[in-house]
């Protein structure tokens, strides 16, 4: 026990006993921080208090001092609980550091290049709810004839979801060279996921492919929620959906493929459920809100559209995202 601290404690107690002033109590409170800094445990504090009183009141009855021994016994477990708490906090800090590194690894792993097209404006945004994301956006393109995008969402968040993501990346990388059609891509990824991912993990995925020739957008969906097509001519939205099971449920699931033609000013908004199931204090938002936001920025660039949706839905929930938030916009005919 540091002797200096004991002396100071005795002086402080003595002063308070004489003055009984709030000021001296405040001094004591400040002094307690020194105890904590020096990692003096609660039982030691009682011990210091007892020694101080023994010097100040040497004539106090024996029984009185024995009561302090009882109190010291009582405090031992408080001291241990405090130390355990401190050690758990240190452990948590270590874990957080590891998470930061994992996050960096994931960011490198999931890097994707946005295709550059004269015919099609592409914008996207993905924001994880926690450090690791369970959303996955991946572009494939030859920069002249076609541009494809995979929008996947692992049901679940955090590290397990992030590990699952790398599996999908592996599947997508295998298809890098081929200009495969959407239902084939889902077919292949489904088999990879089915073989390698735990039964408790489910992944939804939307795959869309735009071809310059004919301005056709073809798509397939593995249990992903419908995407929104904005038609400029009629100023209306159409939901695009195609039949197909979540990835990894059945090895030989088949995926329906459908297509639409994009006209000048049309755009497609592909989102994960972190967007469509935005939660505010009043519960889930109405689907119409997203359409309203999209309408107000329909003439802007694809990136601006994506950013605005995030900005506005984010504000509604004070940017406390409950789920990973991703949105991809394919807009026909916009030129910078």
């Amino acid at each position: 026990m540091p002797k200096e601290v004991e002396k100071q404690y005795k002086a402080l107690v003595n002063r308070y006993i004489n003055t009984k002033s709030e000021n001296d109590l405040y001094a004591g409170q400040k002094f307690s921080r020194r105890f904590i800094e020096k990692e003096i445990s609660p039982e030691e504090v009682i011990g210091i208090h007892k020694s101080a009183l023994m010097e100040l009141f040497p004539d106090a009855p024996e029984d009185f001092w024995h009561s302090f021994d009882f109190l010291i016994e009582m405090m031992i477990h408080y001291g241990l609980a405090l130390q355990e708490h401190q050690s758990l906090i240190r452990k948590q800090e270590e874990l957080e550091l590891e998470m930061k590194i994992a996050e960096k690894v994931q960011n490198t792993l999931l890097k994707t290049r946005v295709p550059t097209f004269s015919d099609l404006d592409i914008g996207f945004l993905t924001v994880p709810a926690k450090q690791m994301s369970g959303d996955y956006i991946y572009f494939l393109s030859d920069d002249s004839n076609y541009a494809s995008v995979a929008v996947a969402d692992v049901i679940g968040k955090g590290i397990p979801a992030a590990l699952c993501m790398s599996m999908i990346k592996f599947g997508m990388d295998n298809m890098q060279k081929q200009n495969s059609s959407p239902h084939v891509v889902l077919d292949v990824v489904n088999r990879i996921v089915e073989e390698s991912v735990d039964d408790s993990m489910f992944i939804s995925m939307f795959y869309g492919k735009y071809e310059v020739d004919g301005s056709v957008f073809s798509y397939a969906s593995a249990g992903h929620e419908p995407v929104l097509l904005y038609k400029a001519a009629s100023n209306t939205f159409i939901e695009l959906d195609a039949k197909g099971l979540l990835l990894g449920v059945q090895p030989n699931a088949t995926y329906e493929e459908r297509s639409v033609v994009l006209d000048e000013g049309d755009f497609i908004a592909m989102m994960t459920d972190g967007v469509t199931e935005t939660r505010t204090e009043d519960g889930f938002i109405d689907d119409e809100i997203i359409k309203e936001i999209l309408t107000t920025v329909k003439d802007e660039s694809a990136q601006k559209i994506a950013d605005t949706v995030y900005q506005q839905l984010g504000e509604m929930q004070n940017f406390h995202l409950h789920d990973d938030f991703s949105i991809v916009i394919f807009k026909k005919g916009y030129k910078n």
Partner: peptide, 20 residues
């Protein structure tokens, strides 16, 4: 390891003995 003991979070058990 801290937190393993059935006393859970009360600091006792074997890690507590080691600290004492």
């Amino acid at each position: 390891n801290d937190g393993y003991s059935t006393s859970g979070g009360l600091g006792a058990g074997m890690p507590g003995v080691r600290r004492l």
